[in-house]
């Protein structure tokens, strides 16, 4: 068999787009709040199951289901901030405590879903999945093209939002220097909460796209979160464009790597890449060195 470059490229783009949506939300929350919000993966999986519930179980219209799902993920992101993180931050807890509490939140959410929905995979079953288009030797489905396009549009919108709107500029100001932003009269506590809402919204969109394209299982939050933060760390966790680039690198490394290695090593490739970056370039490709090294 010849080297199926185009197919591997498509697969990398599809999975990279999903990772990028997870990673930018994570990176946005990290850059304003300065801690690793692992439970971001929970937002993704909650979105997938919420869409499954509204669309598949309750037979609501797709658009209504999607809107309800996004409302739920944004509220859950806000609630996590309000009930857990904010009290911890106000007590000036170390970022490590926040990191551990976010892992606990992720485990909590995944197991609640496991409890209510069971361990078997769920399929939303919207579009017959294998109506593919052939380009050369490679196949890609309409849904997958849609997924890539939607992700890219959203990522561009997010970039423009952060660059060119007042709110986006305020968010970047808080990310850059929280004390200074507060002195200049910005309502930092509202902006911190707002970054959770926006970040969770992006996680929700990722969850919906995954739900439409793949099957859902309760434990997918952890693996998506790992890929998302790997992408963010590799690209530079403070930088939204960096996180996007990092996520496509992770997607590419996984897919092109499995041409040479058994497909079971997909995750190992990501972790090794992450580990190497943490060791040799912990600030990532576009990152700052601040707060990384001892």
């Amino acid at each position: 068999m010849t080297f199926p470059f185009l197919q591997l490229l498509f697969n990398s783009l599809i999975i990279g787009s999903i990772y990028a949506l997870v990673a930018v939300g994570f990176s946005l929350i990290y850059s304003t709040n300065r801690f690793m919000h692992f439970a971001h993966g929970a937002s993704v999986v909650i979105a997938g199951y919420a869409l499954f519930t509204f669309f598949h179980l309750l037979h609501l219209h797709l658009i209504i289901s999607i809107l309800l799902t996004l409302a739920i993920t944004m509220s859950i992101g806000y609630l996590m901030h309000l009930c857990i993180y904010k009290p911890l931050q106000q007590r000036k807890s170390s970022t490590v405590i926040l990191l551990i509490s976010s892992i606990a939140l992720l485990i909590l959410a995944e197991n609640l879903i496991l409890l209510f929905y069971g361990a078997d995979v769920k399929s939303i079953g919207l579009i017959p999945p294998r109506t593919g288009i052939s380009i050369g030797d490679a196949n890609i489905t309409v849904l997958q093209i849609f997924l890539i396009v939607i992700s890219v549009i959203l990522l561009i919108f997010l970039y423009l939002f952060l660059r060119h709107t007042r709110l986006g500029r305020n968010l970047r100001a808080v990310a850059d220097n929280k004390e200074l932003a507060a002195i200049m009269g910005l309502n930092t506590s509202r902006l911190l909460a707002f970054s959770f809402v926006i970040g969770s919204l992006l996680a929700g969109i990722a969850g919906i796209l995954i739900g439409l394209e793949q099957n859902l299982n309760p434990m997918m939050g952890t693996s998506l979160m790992i890929k998302g933060f790997s992408g963010a760390v590799i690209g530079g966790i403070f930088s939204v464009p960096g996180s996007i680039l990092g996520s496509y690198i992770v997607g590419g490394a996984e897919n092109f790597g499995t041409w040479y290695l058994p497909s079971g090593y997909k995750d190992a490739i990501t972790f090794t890449l992450l580990f190497l970056f943490l060791l040799f370039k912990p600030a990532g490709l576009f990152g700052m060195e601040k707060g990384v090294k001892a």
């Binding site: 801690f35 690793m36 170390s94 970022t95 490590v96 990191l99 790992i226 933060f229 790997s230 760390v233 079971g264 090593y265 995750d267 190992a268 972790f271 090794t272 992450l274 580990f275 943490l278 060791l279 912990p282 707060g291 990384v292 090294k293 001892a294």
Partner: peptide, 22 residues
């Protein structure tokens, strides 16, 4: 990991766990 601290040390040890697991 001797040069890392805080979150980054936590992440590096966590990814060490994932490497061993895989």
């Amino acid at each position: 990991t001797r040069k890392l601290k805080g979150d980054y040390l936590a992440l590096a040890t966590l990814s060490f766990h994932f490497v061993i697991y895989s």
